Simulated scan of single mutants.
Amino acid sequence: MASPNDTLFDVLTVGEPMALFMAAEPGELHAVHDFRRAAAGAELNVATGLARLGLRTGYITRLGDDSFGRFLANELAREGIDRSFVQVDASRPTGFMLKTRAADGSDPQIEYFRKGSAASGLGPADAPAGVFPARHLHLTGITPALSPRALELVFHLARQARAAGATISFDPNLRPRLWPSPEVMAETINALAALADTVLPGLSEGTQLTGHTTPEAIADFYLERGARQVAVKLGPEGAFYKHKDGASGFAQGIAVERVVDTVGAGDGFAVGVVSALLEGLDLPAAAARGNAIGARVVGFPGDSDGLPTRAQLHPALHS
């Protein structure tokens, strides 16, 4: 059972951190000789980005009692992410992943090794006891796909946050191979999105989940189900945003001189939107910050290498 924390976080998130091995040279994974190790995981990327911007960030997870788990625990500490709700599970391993280096900036090939991982053992007992200890909860569609108990945990956290008056952001972050079927995936993720204030789908994700093909129709789908606001990621074209009051628009994309790696761009977008909203900025400004951070991320090889510090944020916004 996680022990209560009476100090309020700005943001709490939950997920599976993984050791990432990035190829040092282009080519198929089986032919690569050298790799660079880093930390990865969608929710961890978001926690890292928010912590670098000075937000007090907590992270709920389970790590194996192994070298990967110790590496990730050290990375959390190095980034200033609170570990009060990080548990060590000696009976399960820490997950890891391999990623190619795409010389042309295209999406890399990724192989995951996460079956039976420590994080798949997450469950309701890992939730904070007592009053929800943060003013904002960030969720993705990955954690509920890890196991039935992890699914219970995510819904429990969402309801706990709502009862405490905290806001919630939700990024679908689809991983179809983790779900038993596309139908179960869509039903579960849309149910979670209905509990969120801010929903952050990509255009292709939104089409898979809603059956709609335009950004505004996707946004309307989630607004009709209870979301306060939606920002639909459009890749290099930027983002479409819409508020429940009907205000909508496009946040222009930012030109990138050279795309190094596309992985993590969506997490960077979430960092920008969540941080801006927590600072009291409006949705257009939040979407613009999301675009700026997402564009910065694709210029770096690691999933979180390009997430800016507070000092680096202003240049990113005005590049």
Score class of each variant (00 low, 15 high):
residue 214 T to G: 05
residue 5 N to A: 11
residue 66 D to R: 03
residue 87 Q to C: 11
residue 203 L to T: 03
residue 206 G to Q: 01
residue 142 I to N: 02
residue 169 S to D: 07
residue 191 A to W: 07
residue 282 D to T: 12
residue 285 A to M: 12
residue 107 D to S: 15
residue 301 P to A: 01
residue 76 L to H: 13
residue 134 A to V: 05
residue 90 A to Y: 02
residue 220 D to F: 01
residue 158 A to N: 06
residue 210 T to Y: 05
residue 308 P to G: 06
residue 57 T to N: 08
residue 241 Y to V: 01
residue 145 A to G: 14
residue 100 T to V: 08
residue 72 L to I: 10
residue 201 P to M: 11
residue 179 W to N: 02
residue 309 T to D: 01
residue 15 G to P: 12
residue 124 P to K: 13
residue 255 A to Q: 15
residue 105 G to T: 03
residue 106 S to W: 02
residue 24 A to M: 14
residue 273 V to P: 00
residue 293 I to E: 00
residue 297 V to D: 00
residue 298 V to I: 15
residue 34 D to A: 11
residue 260 V to M: 08
residue 79 E to G: 06
residue 1 M to S: 14
residue 181 S to H: 09
residue 120 S to C: 13
residue 4 P to R: 15
residue 240 F to C: 10
residue 58 G to L: 03
residue 34 D to W: 02
residue 111 E to R: 13
residue 213 T to K: 10
residue 313 L to K: 03
residue 43 E to P: 03
residue 229 Q to S: 13
residue 155 F to Y: 10
residue 16 E to Y: 04
residue 311 A to C: 09
residue 209 L to H: 04
residue 42 A to Y: 01
residue 149 R to M: 15
residue 203 L to Y: 00
residue 281 L to W: 12
residue 71 F to C: 09
residue 46 V to H: 01
residue 72 L to D: 06
residue 127 A to H: 06
residue 184 V to F: 08
residue 41 G to A: 01
residue 280 G to C: 10
residue 291 N to M: 02
residue 243 H to A: 13
residue 239 A to Q: 06
residue 225 R to S: 01
residue 234 L to K: 04
residue 42 A to S: 14
residue 242 K to A: 09
residue 310 R to E: 13
residue 305 D to L: 01
residue 315 P to H: 13
residue 79 E to L: 11
residue 65 D to C: 09
residue 291 N to P: 02
residue 125 A to K: 13
residue 313 L to D: 00
residue 30 H to Y: 14
residue 239 A to R: 00
residue 161 A to F: 08
residue 122 L to Y: 05
residue 71 F to K: 03
residue 105 G to N: 04
residue 57 T to E: 07
residue 163 A to D: 15
residue 259 V to I: 13
residue 268 G to F: 00
residue 184 V to D: 15
residue 35 F to T: 06
residue 14 V to I: 12
residue 114 R to A: 09
residue 83 R to C: 04
residue 5 N to K: 10
residue 173 N to S: 10
residue 280 G to T: 09
residue 86 V to K: 02
residue 71 F to M: 08
residue 278 L to S: 04
residue 194 A to L: 11
residue 30 H to N: 15
residue 130 G to Q: 11
residue 309 T to I: 10
residue 272 G to R: 02
residue 157 L to M: 11
residue 99 K to M: 14
residue 297 V to M: 04
residue 250 F to S: 05
residue 131 V to D: 14
residue 152 E to R: 12
residue 243 H to D: 14
residue 54 G to M: 10
residue 141 G to H: 07
residue 143 T to Y: 03
residue 315 P to A: 10
residue 113 F to C: 11
residue 219 A to D: 04
residue 115 K to S: 14
residue 6 D to R: 12
residue 147 S to E: 10
residue 252 Q to E: 14
residue 152 E to G: 10
residue 244 K to I: 15
residue 112 Y to Q: 07
residue 174 L to W: 00
residue 27 G to H: 05
residue 216 E to S: 12
residue 87 Q to G: 09
residue 72 L to Q: 05
residue 225 R to D: 02
residue 170 F to K: 05
